[in-house]
Design a binder for these strands. Structure first.
Lengths: 215, 215
DNA sequence: TGTACATCAGTGAACGCGCGTTCACTGATGTAC
DNA sequence: TGTACATCAGTGAACGCGCGTTCACTGATGTAC
């Protein structure tokens, strides 16, 4: 958190109202999804007029970008904290599920259907890389005597994006697999595709994690 | 396909215009996503007035429902055909990827972020069950000497949704895993989360499939 | 401490837009005798 | 084969709505001397 004591009262007030706007935006997203996000509706709920919000955000797009950034930031922080707790890969994995269940719409804002025409700014992809780095670290730390897979040899020649990480190809492959498998369970669960089936999605998630930890 | 010769010319015309409306709807979805689907815009592109569409659909919701139904139907047919070709689980798996890449927005309409407030009609969930049945069949046909997993024992008591299928618990578990893992790779790929990484998503998909077929 | 000025949050009116949907209607197509 | 009628596709006007965004403005808060 930035030091608020170095800010003038006006700056502090600005930051506070900005935060309040974002909170209302999240509430609205949680209710009606990201595509229904409306500046006027937020303003009305805050007891302000619509144009007032333009003092705080250049427009709707900037607000959404800010929300996406915050979501990624929140995930990266959660990941880092979970990894620091020392439970290996299981830590971030369980943290991911908790983070997703805590606010499904936030999860979908990041990992769901892409908004047509919207491109995330560059710094956001940087934060995304942070989360990947946490998984990579955890995978590199796992003991592994599996032979390098055929995808592993492919990734060896296409891993500039993971440069700076000393992870061997098998670990890079495993990191990608962690990501896709956990996301696969989570996104289908959150989208309601398991409703009507009586099993517990948490156990399916746990089973996938076990399989990933095996060996 | 239904026999068009039993229809009157008027009925044939109706069916044709309905189909044309849907085609334009798909084009619009492919361009701007499902949330941007607009009856007026479709009508304009067809050279008709907006209200004319109400001769063919009760409203926007009915049109979307129809599109969702068609998408599921198309997937189920694709699956069944692929399964009939006799390549085992690999058939439907590759068919799924081809189907998804063929029209990513159709894939997201079915498996993407749920539209808030929208609930698919019952017959659609029935078609979804058809696709699951294809996977179940393929998994049951796989030779398996794996011990029943702990999730397998859990699913044994929660598999009413898969009743009518003689698949053993391990096969049911595997079927769910097939679904979540393939979806995990596909949805991240289609949402653009692999852009910037240079590896070939097709190979990652193939690696996941290999892992599922192993044993 | 008091005064003059600059900064800035917030308002209300307005613009132009596209949306879904209804309604009364015209005109063409099909049907029955 | 011709005429009277019913069906139905499609139109244009209208309703009410909410959206993002701009603009000129008021009034309060902070700053400089």
């Amino acid at each position: 958190m930035t030091d608020t004591r170095t800010k003038t009262p006006r700056e502090r007030y600005r930051a506070q109202v900005r935060a309040e706007i974002k909170e209302h935006a999240w509430e609205q997203i949680a209710t009606a999804g990201a595509s229904a996000l409306s500046l006027n509706a937020i303003a009305k709920r805050m007891g302000m007029s619509g144009p007032a919000l333009y003092r705080y955000f250049a427009g709707r797009d900037e607000l959404i970008t800010e929300l996406v950034r915050d979501a990624y930031r929140s995930l990266a922080d959660t990941f880092r904290a979970a990894a620091g707790a020392g439970a290996g890969l299981a830590g971030p994995a369980h943290a991911l599920r908790a983070w997703a269940l805590d606010d499904p719409h936030r999860y979908f804002l990041v990992f769901g259907t892409p908004v047509p025409g919207y491109r995330a700014p560059d710094d956001v992809t940087g934060i995304a890389a942070e989360t990947m780095a946490v998984i990579l670290d955890a995978c590199a730390a796992l003991p592994s005597d599996r032979p390098t897979t055929s995808f592993g040899t492919h990734i060896e020649g296409h891993r500039q994006w993971a440069d700076g990480h000393p992870a061997p190809p098998a670990a890079v492959h495993r990191a990608l697999t962690v990501w896709t498998r956990l996301h696969g369970v989570l996104s289908l669960e959150l989208a309601g595709h398991f409703t009507g089936m009586e099993f517990d999605p948490a156990l399916l998630y746990a089973a996938e994690l076990d399989d990933l930890l095996e060996r």
